[in-house]
Simulated assay, not measured.
Amino acid sequence: MIIKGSNFSVMDNSGAKKVQCIQTLGGKKPTSLLRVGDKIVVVIKKMERVTGVKLKVKKSDVCYAVIVKSKQKVRRQTGICVQAAENGVILLNKSKEPIGTRLTGIVFKEANRNSLLKNVSISKFII
């Protein structure tokens, strides 16, 4: 179940590792359940340790994000249920474009329902 306060792992190469949801976007109530493809506001909790490279975000920055995979089962119209081992997001800038240039891991097809085609197209593994 994904709600306000849930923790996510970051699926791109922006430099962040773990983030926490602080607000929902798109007219959803803060108490409502979130699904794959929803946009949220997150705060960065943990960063990657990289030396000599300038990272695109810093710890305790507030960013937009879109949910691309979840532990909660996602049921499709064909009757298939898919789920991941952890919750994952892609970080977005203020103009709702991805901060990272590469996605690591799998991305659910349902992440494309909010016209985020660029997010899905830069991923190698789409389930």
Results as ranks from 00 to 15, higher is better:
15 G>P: 14
44 I>Y: 03
40 I>A: 01
76 R>I: 02
124 K>C: 05
53 V>L: 11
3 I>L: 13
36 V>Y: 05
85 A>L: 08
59 K>V: 10
24 T>D: 00
106 I>P: 12
57 V>A: 05
15 G>V: 06
65 A>N: 06
78 T>W: 08
43 V>C: 05
18 K>F: 09
36 V>L: 01
71 K>Y: 04
10 V>M: 03
5 G>C: 03
96 K>G: 00
70 S>C: 07
36 V>D: 00
57 V>T: 09
83 Q>N: 13
82 V>K: 11
106 I>S: 10
92 L>N: 07
3 I>C: 03
41 V>P: 09
112 N>W: 08
65 A>P: 04
41 V>R: 15
34 L>P: 03
44 I>R: 09
46 K>G: 00
48 E>H: 15
5 G>E: 07
75 R>N: 07
116 L>Y: 15
99 I>H: 10
28 K>A: 00
122 I>N: 04
75 R>M: 12
72 Q>G: 04
27 G>K: 12
14 S>Q: 04
63 C>I: 06
124 K>A: 04
69 K>Y: 12
74 V>S: 07
113 R>K: 14
118 K>G: 02
96 K>V: 01
113 R>P: 03
81 C>K: 12
41 V>F: 01
51 T>D: 09
32 S>D: 15
60 S>H: 14
111 A>F: 10
120 V>W: 05
91 L>F: 10
114 N>P: 03
44 I>G: 00
8 F>R: 03
103 L>I: 15
55 L>A: 01
9 S>P: 04
100 G>Y: 08
22 I>G: 00
82 V>A: 05
52 G>A: 00
64 Y>M: 04
5 G>N: 05
110 E>S: 15
107 V>A: 05
119 N>M: 11
105 G>S: 06
33 L>Q: 12
98 P>T: 05
74 V>Y: 10
65 A>S: 02
111 A>D: 00
18 K>W: 07
101 T>R: 14
34 L>S: 01
62 V>G: 06
112 N>G: 08
95 S>F: 13
4 K>A: 01
69 K>N: 07
116 L>Q: 11
2 I>K: 08
4 K>F: 03
17 K>S: 07
18 K>I: 15
79 G>T: 03
76 R>C: 02
50 V>C: 05
108 F>I: 02
117 L>Y: 15
126 I>G: 03
104 T>R: 11
27 G>E: 06
60 S>L: 09
107 V>L: 02
18 K>G: 00
16 A>F: 09
112 N>Q: 10
42 V>D: 00
22 I>E: 04
125 F>V: 12
48 E>N: 15
93 N>W: 13
21 C>R: 11
33 L>S: 10
127 I>H: 14
84 A>D: 09
6 S>V: 01
101 T>H: 13
109 K>M: 00
53 V>N: 11
56 K>C: 00
67 I>K: 02
113 R>D: 04
78 T>D: 13
111 A>E: 01
121 S>G: 09
25 L>R: 07
52 G>T: 02
98 P>R: 13
32 S>M: 07
85 A>W: 04
39 K>W: 04
39 K>H: 07
10 V>W: 08
61 D>M: 09
19 V>N: 03
48 E>F: 14
64 Y>W: 10
49 R>F: 13
16 A>C: 09
8 F>L: 06
88 G>I: 03
110 E>K: 15
39 K>R: 11
8 F>H: 06
36 V>S: 01
7 N>G: 05
45 K>V: 08
4 K>Q: 11
61 D>C: 06
85 A>E: 09
71 K>R: 12
50 V>Q: 09
